[in-house]
Design a protein around this nucleic acid. Structure first.
Lengths: 195, 195
DNA sequence: GTCTATAATCGGATAGAC
DNA sequence: GTCTATCCGATTATAGAC
């Protein structure tokens, strides 16, 4: 029968494990670590709560499993930095940012990190380490910009994400991507350019 | 005995009510609405949990009581807008922003709103209405800047608050106020200036 | 693989004594 | 004004049957 050594679904598996992971991503994204309950995740996935423990052990383990990004951050950063001329870096960053937040699959883990970090100290530490090592350090190393400036640019983007996708303030929430690019790309570019 | 009609402490009051309010502000600020428990608030205040209900009824009522800002937002906005020449508006906004976040008394309610809005839908609605009516509308009316631009400026400041005071990323978290003013004020000014 | 049953804890809220 | 006692619901987690 079907029996692979790597990848794919193992023999005997139903789709429950993946269903749990998908439901967990949604719940963590929507309510943060503390607000997402195993019972609700199980209900969303259509399985028994005990099955969640059977697959993932503790809630914390489920959290880190659910947050594994579908793409590799280091690869993404390198791509954004090198995909064109330096004078268009601001625009590339804004477009990349909007693409991540526009796609449900990548938005859920990021939203989960933000929502959880806001109220859970352990999650905040995870986010701090991730932002520092996976993003800031690579960007700072890749281009010759002082770290405080890179952080100011990141702050601009995170603030927009908060107003647009979490608090949902108008007209920011409904503005088309292109309008945001036209507005924000020059701002980011300027932050990075002035030594 | 002592018996005033307005202001001051009423006869028979101990300091418990104020102690509860102060503890509630800290807890809501530190853990968000859902994460702050009445039992913990009571413990911080050194009183019995039942006393919290005695004074404030439900947890929700306690929340809105704890979040009454010590200053009036409409007054603050007007002051920032009119306190100097238009070309220094960016600097005034940044300095005001840093003053609010630098003082514990004003930081606690703002932090509580952010942390709660991140995971609690009801709190998010409160924040959205507050940001829209109390801040954005007044600023947009006061100066002739499109709302989307004002929101971009607010996003820049909120993002900085997040990195500096919540996630605590270095060097943003430890940078002196003046360094941030020098870096950010021109950015805000530019957002507001270009039609 | 999946579920039942249950332990152990913690949450908000209330009634009522003092 | 303040506290004791308690109700009732929800939570994570485990043991074990099927």
């Amino acid at each position: 029968m079907v029996m692979r050594t790597r990848g794919g679904r193992r023999a005997g598996d139903s789709g429950s494990r993946d269903a749990i992971l998908a439901a967990a991503r949604d719940r963590f994204a929507g309510h943060g670590y503390d607000g997402a309950t195993i019972r609700a995740i199980a209900a969303d996935a259509g399985v028994d709560p005990a099955l969640v423990h059977h697959y993932f052990g503790t809630k914390e383990h489920l959290f880190v499993s659910a947050l594994r990004l579908p793409i590799d951050p280091r690869q993404m950063v390198a791509q954004v930095l090198d995909a064109g001329p330096r004078r268009e870096l601001g625009e590339r960053m804004v477009r990349f940012f909007l693409r991540v937040w526009g796609d449900e699959r990548s938005r859920a883990p990021v939203l989960a990190m933000i929502r959880s970090a806001a109220t859970n100290e352990q999650a905040a530490t995870m986010v701090r380490q991730f932002v520092t090592s996976a993003l800031l350090s690579r960007v700072t190393d890749g281009i010759g910009v002082p770290r405080l400036r890179v952080e100011a640019a990141v702050a601009q983007l995170i603030g927009i994400a908060l107003l647009r996708y979490v608090v949902k303030v108008e007209p920011m929430a409904s503005a088309p991507d292109e309008e945001l690019v036209a507005l924000v790309a020059p701002l980011i570019q300027r932050i990075l350019d002035e030594t």
